[in-house]
Amino acid sequence: MIYCVGHSIISPLGEGTEANIEAVKAGRSGLKHYTERFADVEPFCASLFDTPQEFVPLCIKSVKMAMDNSSINNDQTVFILSTAKGDHLDLYTPAQQIAASFGNRNQPIVVSNACTSGVSAQITAMRLLQSGMYQHAVVVGCDLQSRFIVSGFQAFKALSNEPCTPFDPNRKGLNLGEAAATIIYSRQQNGQQPYWTLKAGSIHNDANHISAPSRTGEGAYLCLKDVLNGVQPEEIALIGVHGTGTLYNDDMERIALQRAGLADIPMSILKPYFGHTMGAAGVLETIICAEMAFRSTLSNGKTRIIKILSGFGGVNAAIRIER
């Protein structure tokens, strides 16, 4: 069994998982308008830290918070970093710096699977633990916004300059966001009640186009089918979808959910609160989605949730977790 024994979120909405859950419950959003944050780019709407953050210290802070209530043995622990652009385009050095700051000598792993990285990284952790190569995995997801990223998404005409409205017929595009989030997985319960267990994970490519989502939701559908693996759709309490608010991605997800028989299951969409936090998204959204579903009376005692993401390169990734 792969247990979640710790987690944390640091976002513009607050520090710590609880602060972020409270913010979401209160309907607070981190999205604001920006006109002068980065030179040359057109005005945009995003969820950014008021004070610009440093990548490595932010990740370290997030990991420390997640470790607070879990004891993990360093020799048998691997650090996995999920990020799109890392620390000023450097991806591996920050991972080494984060692991080293905890005295960890194992070579860290960086998952660079576009916007699915946060879910892909949890799947990588699951495999490393299942194989017995490691006993614990620290999965940290983080991205900070920059002129580089905002200009690129604007050139792609993918950004809405208003707060995003996923699955709305008049949706205009996505908003970017900043955050760091950590999940610690372990093969051992360490005498405490685990937050959840990671049951299944799947990654599939659309094999269709490097930036346009599949019109038939091919890869996402195959992921959903894999992670259900015998579980009936009505046994799922909640599906955390990507829900970016772009015309084609939301459409693709709707088709994939319908094909997998999951169209009637409640969805969790968090981009209107946090924006698209890229490398952090899969980690952050898994935590919020799981904690809210497991605590809510609306789940009717159901204990299973699915988290799915899709990204550039035609890649899709999904996991199933259970209380």
Binding site: V110, V111, S112, N113, I203, D206, I210, G219, G313, V315
Partner: peptide
Amino acid sequence: AIRHHLQGETSFYI
């Protein structure tokens, strides 16, 4: 994946 119609897993690590 596109060129060879591969709908299995694709992963990239640093």
